[in-house]
Design a protein around this nucleic acid. Structure first.
Lengths: 143, 143
DNA sequence: CCACTAGTTTTGACTAATTCAAGAAAACCC
DNA sequence: GGGTTTTCTTGAATTAGTCAAAACTAGTGG
């Protein structure tokens, strides 16, 4: 369980200024993995009081750019964020209820990076999204 | 090069009514793989004259649901469509110019479907997006 | 400790993509 | 062709996210 000063250190480590909104966003995303922007705004306001949505958008962009957050966005979904970065893991998304869970890559640390024919692209990342049904939705299929 | 009656047959095969907009959308997506909705609307209007954007959205949804089109949506991009379905291929996206190319799966017909721990999800599809630079952008990196 | 400056946040308007809803029109079955 | 059901048109609404300018503040150096 990281403390506020842990988040503070993370910010300083990437040369970002330490501000209330930034610490609150980091903490909110840490507590609610895969949260969308709106929930993050809600959580941040619960911690700090009034914070503009624009500030949260800016913070999310800054933290994502600095590598403290990872942004994921399955098709048909809004942007979601998580603090688990740098370990190349993937996600399962439930087709029915949109639940998301983490999946470690089966093939090691650079999974599926071996495209058969890369068309001359220089590939530096492979992003995998698994689609299916979560345990809850697969036991009651048609509700 | 499929003819209009090929598209017509594809529609009948999945029990969808044959209409001008539907044939035109199928043909437009076939001719412009990875096209976004706006280009598709443009192409359809070039073929048929006035067609409402709503009709195109409806058609895209119907055709995607019926399996005649596949919808792809890399993060930060609008929805794009392609007619190549059912062969489990993936995509490379250029970080710089958003170009998209097809990639056949390196691992056979059901790639990466072996998640290490599926958290109880029943997975039926693995979607892979490779990120990198296209040939053009990687030869002039900073323009 | 104070002031300065660059980087942040607030405020408020705005855009782009997509969806909703109701009526008119067209496709398919006979 | 007539009837039914699906599809298309029209027009408005929603949603997520962006833009821009002014107010503010964290970190720096005096």
């Amino acid at each position: 369980m990281p403390t506020p000063s842990d988040f503070e250190r993370m910010l300083r480590d990437v040369a970002l200024r330490v501000t209330g909104p930034r610490v609150a966003v980091l903490s909110a995303v840490h507590d609610n993995p895969h949260a969308d922007t709106e929930s993050i705004i809600g959580a941040v306001r619960g911690q700090l009081g009034a914070v503009s949505h624009q500030a949260v958008y800016d913070v999310l962009k800054a933290l994502t750019g600095a590598g403290l957050l990872r942004r994921i966005q399955p098709r048909g979904s809004v942007a979601r964020y998580e603090t688990r970065v740098g370990d190349n893991h993937h996600h399962v998304v439930c087709r029915s209820c949109d639940a998301i869970a983490d999946i470690d890559c089966a093939v090691g640390h650079a999974p599926c990076l071996s495209a058969s024919d890369d068309h001359g692209f220089s590939i530096d990342e492979a992003e995998v999204i698994y689609w299916g049904l979560c345990p809850d939705c697969s036991t009651r299929p048609s509700s």
